[in-house]
Amino acid sequence: MANSTMVTEFLLMGFADKWQLRLLLSVLFLLMYLATLLGNLLIVSATTLDQNLHTPMYFFLRNLSILDMCYVSVTVPNACVNSLTDNRAISVAGCAAQIFLVIYCAYVEFLLLTVMARDRYVAICQSLHYPVIMNHQFCVWTTLVSLLSGLIFAAVHTGNTFRLSFCQSNVVHQFFCDVPSLLSLSCSDTFNNFLLIIVSAILVAGGSFIFIIISYIYIFSTVMKFPTRERGKAFSTCVPHILVVSVFLSSASCVYLRPSGASDILQGMILTVCYTIVPPLLNPIIYSLRNRQVKEAVRKVMLRKYYSGN
């Protein structure tokens, strides 16, 4: 410790060592990023401009789309630029900001997906009371609580990470700064950090997952009483939600709860992509663009932009 030098910047690992592979992966990630922005921007535009989509379900979808655009913008553009320029350095302040924003977006996404499960439960199982339960005030307050509590949650985890001393290697084995990668670089005792992660995972991720599963148990038991035609429609909206939630929660849990050095770097990067890039990319497709109402609203938005441009 006496001969060690305190870390003043970190070096992100990047996508690959070979230039050709870095270029290929950077272009792939960039295309995914642009597709994510386009899909979510169309959802935001359609649900804002079309009066028929001013309902609780589309209110939460609009918020989720805005969040997803922010979520994917925290990591992908910087990673692509770093990989193409081979400039892997990131300041300690920049790393802290990236960790804060990633945790914040992931936390709020957990809560929004949970509230959306409740929305589906009320719509299917308590349809007569839907306007009363899912009123505008409830939607606004739920969103505000999610956004504000996310600030506290992200600040606690970021502060708890950067109170540590980093005096060993400064190479982050990830294409962006995340908590598990930094904990493996610390020369301080990280037991309290891992304990905080486990408690947070149980309370936030575990609590959200249990709530969502219970909601869908009731939903599926109710849907089974529907006529076959309506049953298929209900399943088509619910199953994709469960799929995205499962991928999101399982991949995030594997990254944050695995023991240090328990898996190789490639596996860790793939799991990270599954919870930082895949959900924002798929959400517009499975939640909205498969919906006839939304597709019609998107078509109107596209035509309006086309004619206004001419």
Results as ranks from 00 to 15, higher is better:
Thr5Gly: 02
Thr5Val: 10
Val7Phe: 08
Phe10Asn: 15
Leu11Ile: 12
Phe15Glu: 00
Ala16Phe: 10
Leu24Gly: 14
Ser26Val: 02
Val27Ala: 15
Val27Tyr: 15
Leu30Met: 12
Met32Trp: 00
Tyr33Val: 01
Leu37Lys: 00
Gly39Val: 02
Asn40Thr: 07
Asn40Ile: 05
Val44Glu: 08
Arg62Tyr: 04
Asn63Gly: 13
Asp68Met: 06
Tyr71Asp: 02
Tyr71Val: 00
Ser73His: 03
Val74Leu: 08
Val74Phe: 09
Thr75Gly: 07
Pro77Asp: 09
Asn78Phe: 09
Ala79Leu: 07
Ala79Cys: 11
Ser83Ala: 15
Ser83Glu: 05
Leu84Met: 10
Val92Glu: 06
Ala93Pro: 03
Gly94Cys: 15
Leu101Trp: 14
Leu101Tyr: 13
Ile103Phe: 07
Cys105Glu: 02
Ala106Trp: 00
Ala106Glu: 00
Leu111Glu: 00
Leu113Tyr: 00
Met116Thr: 06
Asp119Leu: 03
Val122Trp: 05
Val122Ser: 04
Ala123Trp: 04
Cys125Thr: 15
Ser127Val: 05
Ser127Asn: 08
Leu128Lys: 15
Ile133Cys: 03
Asn135Met: 11
Phe138Leu: 05
Phe138Tyr: 15
Phe138Ser: 07
Thr143Asn: 03
Ser149Thr: 12
Gly150Asp: 02
Leu151Arg: 15
Ala155His: 07
Thr158Asn: 11
Thr158Cys: 11
Gly159Lys: 09
Gly159Pro: 08
Thr161Tyr: 01
Phe166Pro: 13
Asn170Cys: 12
Val171Thr: 08
Gln174Phe: 04
Asp178Trp: 03
Val179Cys: 02
Pro180Asn: 12
Leu182Tyr: 03
Ser184Gly: 11
Leu185Phe: 11
Ser186Ala: 14
Cys187Phe: 09
Thr190Cys: 01
Asn192Tyr: 13
Val199Phe: 13
Ser200Asn: 14
Ser200Gln: 10
Ser200Lys: 12
Ala201Asp: 07
Ile202Pro: 03
Val204Gly: 01
Ala205Asn: 05
Gly206Tyr: 01
Gly206Lys: 01
Ser208Tyr: 01
Ile212Arg: 00
Tyr216Met: 10
Tyr218Pro: 00
Phe220Arg: 01
Ser221Trp: 04
Val223Ser: 11
Met224Phe: 14
Phe226Pro: 04
Phe226Ser: 05
Pro227Gly: 13
Arg229Gly: 12
Glu230Met: 11
Glu230Tyr: 06
Arg231Met: 11
Ser236Asp: 11
Ser236Glu: 13
Val239Thr: 06
Pro240Tyr: 11
Ile242Cys: 12
Leu249Phe: 03
Ser250Cys: 08
Ser250Trp: 04
Ala252Asn: 08
Ser253Asp: 07
Cys254Asn: 15
Leu257Gly: 02
Arg258Gly: 07
Pro259Ala: 08
Ser263Met: 14
Ser263Lys: 05
Ile265Trp: 09
Gly268Glu: 03
Leu271Thr: 07
Thr272Phe: 06
Cys274Asn: 11
Thr276Leu: 07
Pro279Asn: 02
Pro280Glu: 04
Leu281Lys: 00
Asn283Leu: 14
Pro284Gln: 02
Tyr287Leu: 07
Ser288Val: 04
Leu289His: 12
Asn291Cys: 14
Val294Ala: 05
Lys295Val: 06
Glu296Trp: 08
Val298Pro: 00
Lys300Phe: 04
Val301Ile: 06
Leu303Gly: 10
Tyr306Phe: 14
Tyr306Gln: 13
Tyr307Pro: 05
Tyr307Gln: 15
Tyr307Val: 12
Ser308Arg: 13
Ser308Lys: 12
